[in-house]
Design a protein around this nucleic acid. Structure first.
Lengths: 336, 336
DNA sequence: CTCTGCTGTGAGAGCGCTCTCTCAGCCCGG
DNA sequence: CCGGGCTGAGAGAGCGCTCTCACAGCAGAG
């Protein structure tokens, strides 16, 4: 191994193997048009010197960086320590990028100047593509990058009209199954704790609830939270004030469902006997609540992987099915 | 804004401003020896063209990449979705790197060929420095990189003798406070569920338990888990078989403590009346267990930040206080 | 035996930047 | 009025790689 700072270059390998730089480059990059004996000699020289290509030099000429940015929005930090959503996304993305030999550059917009940093960094093409995780409201950046020709894929259908390809899960379908389950088990006063109405996940899950209830003669009872446990607890309290006789609640996130369960217990309601509770997410933790939570599973890891796969496809220049919606599934446990 | 692929270069800015490339470079990099009028002219040209320096070209000559790798070990993935430890580390690291204008490159060793990938990537100096999060057992890579002169800082005191600087928390001090608390509240049969004994966190927390018990005439009752909820539940069952009369348990992680609580409840033990439970971590979720968990708080976010700060110092060439140990603190809630 | 057409290799330019070195211009002292 | 010292700007090399183009060598056709 070489000492600090004196890494072998293509030149050195070429000299040792007795060939030109171009030939070494061909071998290193797997070009087929190199005679076998020469290829072997080069391989040996590479091995001997412990040669590893300099990424900066390569990027400079190829205009590729072999790295992908994953941008997490401001809100991510708020829930980061308690909400396994972003970790799972990261994990899924990482799996696919690893397999494709791309690097994952993580960026958060939560810190001071975060938005400008991300904007500069991504428009400067320091990365080959950009992934956005669940943006709040209307974030102009994905569209802007898309227009500049930077490969972009976002998680969650963007609000408003947007040409940016996305990957999302079937919120509405999942919620409808959940509400149907409550109806089928004879519940008659079914409330919901919705998510923030500036996020597609919040909007769609409420829409699903409304859609399924529409078919029945039940009226909707709605409170809104922000996906945190605390907001779930508060919203539940409010819901019970609105209708003390409600016998079921669909909660738009598991964390909020946990909060709701805490409130229900404090107020002496038995679950599911008095009030049935269904969540949305299927976080690991929900198997361990008391009672274990019935919930709609969304495949978060898979969402991350699909996100990465789509982006890699765009980066590679393949045409992309503009968007993907992954299925959700009702997981019935004891709470409903 | 320019079309795809035709980003302005230094050259273009220089031409527009009527100066040389060198001068533009000086202005862009904030050199003080440029006359004010010229500086202003260059700034204007930069603005007008929307010039952003090409990172690859810069890296090529400076030999810096302005990015830092954070390596998460294999085990991270296993617990990723349920354990807020890594997310918090990432978050803390990210905060500091953002502030220093460095990029965060995330690498996991969990995927196929992960170790080799990380090794190649980091030794190839594609990053200015490498952070390792809580390695299992004895990982040779940090030491190896350190020897090659690559700036490295690891989280958690390395097992065995190692010259690699680390940042850790005061496991032993925290555990001693926890056990002392149990002793002071009159508990006489204090068991422990230890963490994996190939990790410093597991070893030290057990050592702290033993050390504090040593002073009293109480005997130690030990079971070992792997920091997961399930292992906590199993270990608790085992502990109760070993000593049905135990009246307290110090659990080496919050997740395992949750598992233990589940078991205790299943077996009809009241908490804290029959058995007091103390955890270690102070995850958010522990405020919401029933009863809320008394636990040792370790400052995970701060650990991440300190990790990044130390590494940035090494990268900058400042001499580094070889290691840092952050304080832990007992948080008393209802479970003990 | 020459010519054409291939295949495999080398020469060399150039990606966009930084940094050293050189030098022009100016101020001040002698 | 001239020379030395200083300051600020430009010229130019070169970081390590890829890729185009030229060309050597050889096979097969005419």
């Amino acid at each position: 191994m070489s000492e600090r700072g004196e890494r072998p270059t293509l030149e050195a390998v070429a000299r040792l193997a007795g060939v030109s730089r171009a030939t070494v480059s061909r071998v290193v990059n797997g070009s087929p048009k190199v005679a076998e004996p020469i290829r072997a000699a080069v391989r040996r020289a590479v091995e001997e010197l412990g040669y590893i290509p300099n990424a900066a030099a390569r990027s400079l000429v190829t205009q590729r960086t072999d790295s992908i940015a994953l941008v997490l929005p401001e809100s991510a930090s708020r829930v980061f320590s308690d909400d396994p959503f972003f970790p799972s996304i990261i994990h899924g993305v990482s799996q696919e990028l690893d397999a494709a030999n791309k690097q994952l550059v993580l960026m958060m917009t939560n810190t001071v100047g975060g938005y400008e940093r991300v904007e500069r960094y991504t428009t400067a093409r320091h990365v080959d593509g950009v992934l956005f995780a669940s943006t709040h409201g209307v974030d102009p950046l994905p569209g802007q990058l898309h227009r500049l020709g930077v490969p972009v894929v976002v998680s969650g259908r963007p609000l408003g009209r947007s040409p940016v390809p996305y990957v999302d899960v079937d919120h509405i379908g999942g919620v409808r199954k959940a509400v149907r389950h409550l109806l089928d088990s004879g519940r008659s006063r079914i409330a919901t704790i919705a998510g923030p109405q500036d996020m597609v996940a919040g909007i769609d899950r409420l829409a699903g609830y409304r859609a399924e209830l529409q078919g029945s003669d039940r009226r909707s009872i709605v409170a809104v939270g922000d996906f945190t446990r605390e907001s779930g607890a508060t919203a539940m309290r409010q819901l019970l004030e609105d209708d003390p006789l409600l016998d079921a609640v669909f909660v738009a996130s598991d964390l909020m469902a946990h909060g709701a369960i805490t409130t229900l217990r404090e107020l002496g309601r038995r679950i599911p006997d008095d009030v049935a509770v269904v969540g949305f997410d299927d976080f690991d933790i929900s198997r361990f609540t008391d009672p274990p939570l019935t919930t709609v599973r969304q495949p978060i890891l898979e969402l991350g992987r699909e996100l990465a796969r789509q982006l890699l496809r765009v980066v590679a220049g393949d045409d992309v099915p503009s968007s993907v919606v992954l299925p959700t599934e009702l997981v019935v446990r004891a709470s409903a």
